[in-house]
């Protein structure tokens, strides 16, 4: 029969020789192999203390972006919700009142913005759909939780920290994703 690969080996059915019957040489050989593994590098990464470096295109948890003055970018147009193949996003729009210009960048904003993280498949289509650069997928995982309802993330969970009040946390949350030029 034609072998599929050149790695195929014929099974040796010859009776064992005396040395093989002694077992001990084979056992010692096996034990030296396991012993050599003591000095091998361990591939495990101690997760919470150390994290694996992500690739630049890694898609993690969503973040709702603010502009440089700390105003929310989102205008509740609903394009992300339409684009979402898992139907994880819901939102309610509201009109910006006078005096709220420092909170929202445009006249319309999302009063309620929820992503169901159990539905989300982290495809990144919301990021692509957004005309205002208001949502993007960050480099962080969605943390584990005990209850299903905890996975419905509201605006509080998703909004990026304020860039002027809390610049360090803002920078950290932005990662190297926010280097894109903002489209106005």
């Amino acid at each position: 029969m034609q072998a599929l690969t050149n790695r195929a080996k014929q099974v040796d059915r010859a009776p064992m020789s005396f040395m093989e019957k002694m077992y001990l040489p084979a056992i010692i050989k096996g034990m030296s192999i396991t012993f050599s593994h003591i000095f091998k590098k361990k591939p495990t990464i101690n997760y919470p203390e150390k994290t694996r470096p992500f690739s630049p295109v890694f898609r993690g948890m969503q973040i709702l972006n603010r502009d440089a003055e700390g105003r929310e970018n989102c205008t509740a147009c609903g394009l992300c919700a339409v684009a979402c193949p898992a139907e994880a996003i819901t939102m309610e729009a509201a009109e910006r009142q006078i005096g709220e210009e420092n909170l929202y960048r445009e006249e319309k904003y999302a009063a309620k913005y929820e992503i169901n993280m159990l539905r989300c498949i982290f495809c990144g289509l919301c990021e692509e759909a957004c005309p205002k650069d208001a949502i993007y997928l960050s480099e962080t995982f969605t943390p584990a939780d005990y209850q299903r309802k905890q996975f419905i993330y509201s605006k509080n969970d998703l909004l990026i920290p304020h860039p002027q009040e809390n610049p360090e946390a803002y920078k950290k949350a932005l990662g190297n994703r926010g280097n894109k030029t903002t489209v106005n």
Binding site: T34, F35, H37, I38, K40, K41, K42, P43, T44, N46
Partner: peptide, 10 residues
């Protein structure tokens, strides 16, 4: 764990 290139309970 060490013989199997793992870390074991830590």
């Amino acid at each position: 764990a060490i013989l199997q290139d793992r870390r074991g309970p830590n």
